Simulated scan of single mutants.
Amino acid sequence: MTDPHPPLRSYGRLKTRAIKPRQAALMESLLPALRPPADAFDPRALKPDAAPGWAEVWLEIGFGGGEHMARQAGRRPDVLILGAEPFQNGVASALRHVDEAALANVRIHDGDARELMVRLPDASLDRVFILFPDPWPKARHNKRRIVQPETVAELARLLKPGGQLRFASDWADYVDWTLERLGASRAFRWTAERADDWRTPPADHLTTRYEEKRLGDCAPVFLDFVRA
């Protein structure tokens, strides 16, 4: 009998090289404390005892090496940032950033973001980042992209009215792909009014390590959407 809910598959390499000893130690000691609950949960409850509630809850889908997530968390200690990344070397790197900055407002899901998203309640997120995701540029691999109609629908469920979604890529086809799929949803409004709105990094953007490599086929494009 076919399983109606087969396990999610994270495409691509989950590990490329040996993890450095210090980071490997953090995978054992720090990661278990930062993992969100395995069942459905309210992210606003993930706070130290007696601490005030989080002002906002953000999600970064595919945080890469974690430098953007960690720096945003350092800027906004009143915001809880959930991060999801299946690539183990990236998780190890992120743990180092969290440890060095002594960040108390980061939680890490070391797996596919969609596994985490289904455990979150409706309208529980204030902001979502999808920054320079794997472009899967070959047409036969486009189905592996994280931006799909079902993902858009899930983001619409999770974001509060007025919540923000930022997508960035340096692959022109993926930018067009994303505009088409977000544009097909009545739940989202693209905020751009002029070309500079997508050509110029937003004022609160923090450059990622991948972005600096310029591996795509166009200059970085930044698409900001608002949940209607």
Score class of each variant (00 low, 15 high):
residue 72 Q to M: 15
residue 169 S to V: 10
residue 131 L to W: 05
residue 56 E to Y: 01
residue 166 R to E: 06
residue 61 I to K: 03
residue 123 A to F: 10
residue 103 L to E: 05
residue 55 A to G: 03
residue 35 R to M: 07
residue 211 E to V: 03
residue 159 L to Q: 09
residue 102 A to Y: 00
residue 102 A to P: 00
residue 153 A to S: 08
residue 43 P to Y: 02
residue 49 D to K: 14
residue 101 A to S: 10
residue 129 F to V: 04
residue 88 Q to H: 01
residue 179 L to A: 09
residue 83 G to S: 05
residue 166 R to S: 13
residue 109 H to I: 08
residue 40 A to L: 05
residue 38 A to S: 04
residue 164 Q to V: 15
residue 86 P to E: 12
residue 141 H to E: 06
residue 37 P to F: 06
residue 174 Y to F: 12
residue 187 A to F: 08
residue 136 W to M: 09
residue 85 E to P: 01
residue 128 V to A: 12
residue 201 P to E: 15
residue 107 R to M: 10
residue 46 L to M: 11
residue 82 L to W: 01
residue 75 R to G: 00
residue 50 A to Y: 09
residue 91 V to N: 08
residue 87 F to A: 04
residue 178 T to D: 08
residue 176 D to W: 12
residue 79 V to M: 01
residue 197 D to N: 09
residue 3 D to Y: 04
residue 208 T to K: 11
residue 213 K to H: 11
residue 142 N to E: 07
residue 184 A to Q: 14
residue 93 S to C: 14
residue 224 D to K: 11
residue 102 A to L: 09
residue 68 H to Y: 05
residue 176 D to Q: 10
residue 194 R to H: 14
residue 161 P to I: 05
residue 39 D to S: 04
residue 91 V to Q: 00
residue 90 G to W: 03
residue 135 P to G: 11
residue 123 A to N: 14
residue 34 L to K: 11
residue 53 G to T: 11
residue 194 R to K: 13
residue 55 A to V: 04
residue 156 A to M: 04
residue 197 D to K: 14
residue 176 D to R: 13
residue 27 M to K: 06
residue 208 T to F: 09
residue 183 G to D: 12
residue 150 E to S: 13
residue 119 R to P: 09
residue 51 A to S: 13
residue 20 K to F: 02
residue 148 Q to F: 00
residue 10 S to C: 14
residue 40 A to C: 07
residue 218 C to L: 08
residue 202 P to D: 12
residue 193 E to P: 00
residue 95 L to I: 03
residue 37 P to T: 00
residue 92 A to C: 05
residue 97 H to N: 11
residue 138 K to G: 06
residue 226 V to P: 05
residue 102 A to N: 14
residue 98 V to C: 11
residue 205 H to V: 12
residue 48 P to C: 05
residue 33 A to H: 13
residue 65 G to Y: 01
residue 208 T to A: 06
residue 190 W to G: 10
residue 54 W to Y: 04
residue 140 R to T: 05
residue 190 W to M: 07
residue 194 R to F: 03
residue 96 R to V: 08
residue 149 P to Q: 02
residue 80 L to V: 05
residue 165 L to C: 13
residue 6 P to N: 00
residue 21 P to Y: 02
residue 172 A to H: 15
residue 62 G to W: 01
residue 223 L to I: 03
residue 110 D to F: 02
residue 183 G to R: 07
residue 78 D to P: 00
residue 28 E to N: 03
residue 127 R to K: 15
residue 65 G to K: 05
residue 124 S to N: 12
residue 118 V to S: 14
residue 228 A to L: 08
residue 178 T to I: 03
residue 160 K to G: 03
residue 141 H to D: 08
residue 70 A to R: 06
residue 95 L to W: 08
residue 3 D to R: 10
residue 182 L to S: 03
residue 30 L to M: 04
residue 20 K to S: 13
residue 228 A to V: 15
residue 75 R to V: 04
residue 219 A to H: 11
residue 143 K to S: 01
residue 3 D to L: 06
residue 113 A to I: 03
residue 106 V to W: 07
residue 161 P to R: 05
residue 46 L to Q: 08
residue 161 P to L: 13
residue 142 N to T: 04
residue 7 P to Y: 06
residue 173 D to A: 14
residue 107 R to C: 12
residue 3 D to F: 00
residue 34 L to N: 12
residue 182 L to T: 10
residue 54 W to M: 02
residue 79 V to Y: 06
residue 141 H to I: 03
residue 93 S to K: 06
residue 223 L to V: 07
